[in-house]
C-alpha cells in the first residue's frame, strides 16, 4: 500500500480519537459544574428560607413592639401579642425532655458501644432507626390515648395535658438522636486509652466513667444539643399533648403551649399578611434562629475537639 495512504489513515484515526477524547474531557468538566451547582443549592435553599420567613416575621414589628412580643404574657390578638408563654413553654418542654431522655439515651449509647454482646447490638441498631421512623403524629396519638388519661388518673389534677405528657413523649422521641451520636463519640475514643485504664487495674465501669465518657464528652454534648434542636422544633406530638392554652406553665400539669404548636393551631384561621399571621411567622423565625444557633454551637464543639485531638 502507498505510504501516504497509510499516513492519512493514521492521521484520520488520531483525529477521531481526539474528538472522542476531547468530548470525554468536556463531559468531565461540565458534570463537575453540575455537582458544584447541586452543592450550592443547599446554601441557596437555607438562605431563601431565612429571607422569606424572616421578612414575613419581622413585619410584625410594624404593629407590635418587640418588648411586648418577647416579654408580654398576654396573648390576645389582635389586641395583645405577648408570646412569652410560648417561648417559656418551648424551653421548658425541651429541658424536661433532655432531663429524662438525655441520661437514658446516654446509658443506651454506653450499653451499645461497650457492654452489649454483638447479637444485642444487631437488634439495637435497627431499633434506633425505627425510633426515628415512627411518625411524630403516632407518638402524639399514643401519648394522647395512653399517657394523658394515665396522668389524669394518677395525679388527679387537671386534664392530664401539659409539660409532663409532652416532655415524656419528647424524651422518647429524642432517644435515637442521643444514642446514635453519643455511641459514635464513645466508639471513636482511642482504644489505647481504654486499655491503659484497664491495665492499671480499673474496672470496666471505672474505665467508662473516668476515661471513656470524659474523652467522648464533646461528641456527647453535640448529641444533646442536636436533641435539643429536635425537641424545640417538634410540632405534632407536642401540639397533641401540651393542652394549647396560652398561659405560663406553673407546674408540670398546667396546660400550656409552645411556639410550634401555637403556629399549627392558629395558622389556619388567620388571614395572610395580618399582624396576627405575621406574628406566627415571627415565632417561626425565633425557632429558626434558635436552631441555627444550636448548629453553630455544635460546630464550635467539633472544631475545639479536632484541635484537642491534633494537639494530643
Amino acid at each position: 500500500m502507498n505510504r501516504n495512504v497509510i499516513a492519512e489513515r493514521v492521521l484520520d484515526m488520531k483525529k477521531n480519537m481526539d474528538g472522542h477524547h476531547v468530548r470525554t474531557l468536556l463531559y468531565d468538566r461540565y458534570i463537575r459544574y453540575l455537582f458544584i451547582a447541586s452543592a450550592m443549592m443547599m446554601t441557596l435553599i437555607i438562605l431563601t428560607i431565612i429571607i422569606f420567613v424572616g421578612r414575613q416575621g419581622l413585619l410584625t414589628f410594624k404593629e407590635v413592639s418587640p418588648l411586648q412580643f418577647f416579654f408580654g404574657t398576654n396573648w390576645d390578638p389582635p389586641f395583645e401579642y405577648g408570646a412569652l408563654s410560648f417561648i417559656v413553654g418551648s424551653l421548658a418542654v425541651t429541658a424536661l425532655a433532655i432531663l429524662i431522655g438525655g441520661p437514658l439515651g446516654l446509658a443506651g449509647a454506653v450499653f451499645m458501644a461497650k457492654i452489649a454482646p454483638p447479637r444485642m447490638r444487631e437488634v439495637m441498631r435497627p431499633a434506633t432507626d425505627l425510633y426515628v421512623a415512627i411518625p411524630s403524629v403516632v407518638y402524639g396519638f399514643i401519648g394522647l390515648t395512653v399517657l394523658v388519661p394515665f396522668i389524669r388518673s394518677v395525679l388527679h389534677t387537671g386534664s392530664g395535658f401539659g409539660l409532663l405528657a409532652a416532655g415524656l413523649v419528647l424524651a422518647i422521641m429524642i432517644l435515637p438522636t442521643v444514642i446514635t451520636i453519643s455511641e459514635d463519640a464513645i466508639r471513636s475514643v482511642p482504644r489505647p486509652l481504654e486499655e491503659a485504664s484497664l491495665a492499671l487495674g480499673a474496672t470496666r465501669w471505672q474505665t467508662i466513667w473516668k476515661v471513656i465518657i470524659p474523652a467522648a464528652l464533646p461528641g456527647i454534648l453535640a448529641s444533646i444539643i442536636l436533641a435539643m434542636a429536635r425537641a424545640i422544633g417538634e410540632t405534632m406530638a407536642v401540639q397533641m399533648l401540651i393542652g394549647n392554652t396560652p398561659q405560663l406553665p406553673f407546674n408540670l400539669t398546667t396546660p400550656t403551649t409552645t411556639l410550634p404548636s401555637e403556629i399549627v393551631v392558629e395558622m389556619g384561621n388567620t388571614p395572610f399578611g395580618s399582624a396576627w399571621n405575621n406574628s406566627l411567622f415571627l415565632m417561626a423565625l425565633v425557632l429558626l434562629v434558635i436552631s441555627l444557633l444550636l448548629i453553630l454551637a455544635i460546630r464550635y464543639l467539633a472544631k475545639k475537639n479536632a484541635m484537642n485531638t491534633s494537639n494530643a
Binding site: M42, T43, I45, I46, L47, I49, V53, L226, A229, R230, I232, G233, E234, T235, P260, I263, V264, A284, L287, L288, S291, L292, L294, I295, I298, R299
Partner: peptide, 12 residues
Amino acid sequence: STESLATVPSIV
C-alpha cells in the same frame, strides 16, 4: 448550609 437545613424545624 446542609447541617443548618437538616435542623430547620419542620414547621418552619
